[in-house]
Design a protein around this nucleic acid. Sequence first.
RNA 1: GGGCCCGUGGCUCAGGGGUUAGAGCACUCGGUUCACAUCCGAGAGGCCGAUGGUUCGAAUCCAUCCGGGCCCACCA
Length: 815
Amino acid sequence: MSSYQFQRRENYWQSYWQKEKFFHFNPKAKGKIYAIDTPPPTISGRLHLGHVFSYTQAEIIAAYRRMAGFNLRYPLGFDNNGLPTEKLTEKETGLNPHQTKLKTFIKACSTVIAQYQPGYKNLFRHLGFRWAENLEYLTISPEVQKLSQATFLKLYRRGEIYRQNSPVLYCPQCQTSVAQAEVEDRERKSVFYNLTFRRQNGKELIIATTRPELLPAIVAVFVHPDDKRYRRLEGQSVTSPLGDRVKVIANAKVDPKKGSGAVMCCTYGDSTDVYWVKTYHLKENIIIANDGTINENAKIPEIIGKTISEARKILVEKLKKKGAIKGEKAISHSVGVHERCSTPIEIIPQPQWFAKILAHRQEMLRAGDKINWQPAKMQRRYQDWIKGLKWDWCISRGRFFGIPVPVYHCPHCHKIVLPDSKELPIDPRQQRRRCPYCNHWLQADGNVLDTWFTSALTPDINNRHPANGPLRGKLYPLALRPQGHDIIRTWATYSLLMGLLNHRRPPWKNIMISGHILAKKGEKISKKTGGGQYRPEDLIARYSADALRYAMTGASLGLDAYFEEKEIKQGLRLITKLYHAGKFVIFNLGGDYQPAALKFSQLEAFDQWILFQAQQTAQLMAKYLDKFRYHQALIAFEKFFWHNFCDNYLEISKERVYGPDGRGKTAAQFTLYHGYLAILKMIAPFLPHISEEMYHSFIASPEKGRLESRPGRGLFARNEKIASVHLTPWPKTNYRLAASKASGAELALAIIEKVRATKSRRQLSLSLPLSQLSIRGLNSDWQNLQPFLKDLASVTKSRQILHRSAQKFSLTIRL
RNA sequence: GGGCCCGUGGCUCAGGGGUUAGAGCACUCGGUUCACAUCCGAGAGGCCGAUGGUUCGAAUCCAUCCGGGCCCACCA
């Protein structure tokens, strides 16, 4: 009747762990340090199943490492600055940062963070995560700001960071520059307009474009050098429909098959324009202002001050009236948009800060080779990204809530003024000062750092955390970075760059890359889709955290998986089974059981067999978990626990444990104790609650068959003298099973299976007694079977087992 | 267009040159007073995406193709 009440019990153990601080990092504890560079989730709303998926996979590995004897350093941080947090704040408060006092907006952001952060932490807690609370960090904290700014200044002084007025990818909606990595492609409907230009000889030249509004920004026309149609045009001027005269230049980047084969180069329509302007030293003509409207450089009064799309409409009308549009074609093409707001990205020159990454490509590739990528294939994504980089990393953002670029500019003597490192963290926007050279009031740089700049420093944040005590600054490189494959090009790449620049080596030895969880075919559960219909909190309430965790291990590392509610149910089944198996074990050991000091050789054959299987399983799981293959480890566990232990061994042991005291019973009890304890340990990384529950369980009421679970009382905890199953060592035994015993067990199990099959086929009860079981087979097999016969008779309910010598194995059953 | 991944029973996934290809769910049949109906047993169900090739042997390696996904490029 009594069963496991996960709603209550999971919470109970979470409180216990938190109260006892079991998982706090202690730099002086035993064991080799295993430091994990956990992803700090961005506070941008709520956590979704996608987070749970990848975090759970890493948490399992972490918990296993602790049991494997490492001094685990498993932190959790929160990334609470930058655009996502600003967007959340805008939504929550209705404040528009462009029209709000900086101070007010920053304060509002802090308030919103304070509201949301506990929810994040709670979910991790309710998932049973065993992280070190004393290692927590916030990326907006003064310490991290200081680290980030100090790194900026150091790299600036070394020339690794530079400032340049350069065309950058720019989001007019968010009014900030963005990095290449934040741009995403979207298929958009558009129109290809054929514009008529005039050649010097008065003839028409058709140029096709989807961006007619950029016509006022034209700086040249390009054709392909081998294009016979335009060969004579090269070096000549042509006149745009608006009357601008520009040169025609030949360049191989032109695709003669696209449009008319002649392209207008405007500043800036795309990255090819940037390339051409740089290559041919063309003069820029910028007509888009930072807020995404057309500025006066366009020289067409009707469109000045209009947005890009408005300007396009107006200008198309105007050109049509003039007869300058010869045909249009609706097309669908992909447009680079800002991943956060889906606004098409513009290219606008701005003074920006860049970190040199192009110059370090070779080193970065070499550094990538020194890291153990799991799955190994993921390294290829990193390499491809590095090889394909075209721009240095733009690390400044014209935003508000972030770590400020620690720089002042002097409007008078034009010097750049840097704060002293003792003054960090500093916000030049809020701390005014005078120029040390000319005493004028300085201007703040006004930019904040790309959040990835700070995120890329998480290995350093962890390495320099005060809780490291004597190990502070000595943890580099860390053992493991777990992360999703979608941020290889950002987080992994930038972290590696920072590692090379600051430490001349990669920040970690291993990197495990998780896949995505998909709600159904093609639909990614993420911030963008809102997490689909499944909320982690609801699933925990309905099925338990352990069951949800179970479902999160349904696919191999790195693979995207479809979420199936059925898998959670299966997890719940496993939990129930663990509970009942534990109940059986504990009741058959008795209230004050202490395992006898038996040697392996003193056990019955089946006892030896199951303990040997447990040992093999623990080894196999360890082998898998060492390679981050949690899924394969879990499969190995289930096969052992469910099939070998429950279906076979528990049935086999019943006769002996139910029977009178004696050697057989003592051995069975010993085996139940150690077998089930090993099971609890092996499943502990995966299912933290039920394993702890059973570890602390004791007989509360022998008459009612009721178990209770409490620290200090548990049958296993009491004997093992360790306060949590999660602090126990991974099962490690050194049993040897003789070859004759191994083959005897195999044969005995085959016989059991055969008997069951026969009874089942004849539609008989499995508990039906048999008067005789006669086995034909080799004499040697019969010899091997000897030690198993007693248990074999009891589990098959056979009164008598006979043997006849024969070449071929067969079985006869007599009722 | 380039790169990568995936395509295995109805579903979600293991396996990944060598005996009759696995698991769970779902399905069928049967059993079960005493750890567990959140159980046990048995069964049915698969030309391992297609076609070629390498090999004594291919689900597994190679090539091509088809289908799905991710990333990147193109964005005139």
